[in-house]
Amino acid sequence: MMKKWFLALLVSFPLAAAEPWPEVKWEVLVPKHWNPAKKFKHLDFSKLQDSDPRAMELLDEIKQEWDNAPIEHSLNGKKMRIAGFTLPLERKGDKVTEFILVPYFGACIHTPPPPANQIIHAKSKIPLSGIQIMMPIWVFGTLSVQRGDTTWGVAGYGLSVDKVVPYKEKKQ
């Protein structure tokens, strides 16, 4: 009798209860069926000549396609933890209240910048101490999908931060 009850309990509380902030990888933020090269399938690069101005134009177009990268709407409201590099936006004293999270080091200084679906705009109600520029970090919080401006800006990800933990390399 006791055993059955215990089993029922186990089933009704799946693993999610044990992990309130499941880990999310950056790839998940890119919609599965999105293919930036789709538009350019008909193009044959071998037919372009060296230093063809069209090649440059094409590159610009592909870049633009990346800039307008769509986001995964199903992630709205999902609790998660994600690792990335920080770029502080707003400070309160030496603490940070708003920052941008990007998947790779130096994303803010070097071009090309990451596409819109690889940038998370994180806000924290409690000012966070010890956040520096391009610092690897685990962010725990709830993801939200921000409606973008219709003409230029595409939608982006926002994150309301519950807590942050410095990122440490996993031991092999």
Binding site: L89, I100, P114, H121, G148
Partner: peptide
């Protein structure tokens, strides 16, 4: 900016 996550794109546009 209207949306702060646009900052990189606009930065590149201006550069």
């Amino acid at each position: 900016l209207k949306s702060r996550s646009d900052v990189f794109r606009l930065q590149r546009h201006i550069n």
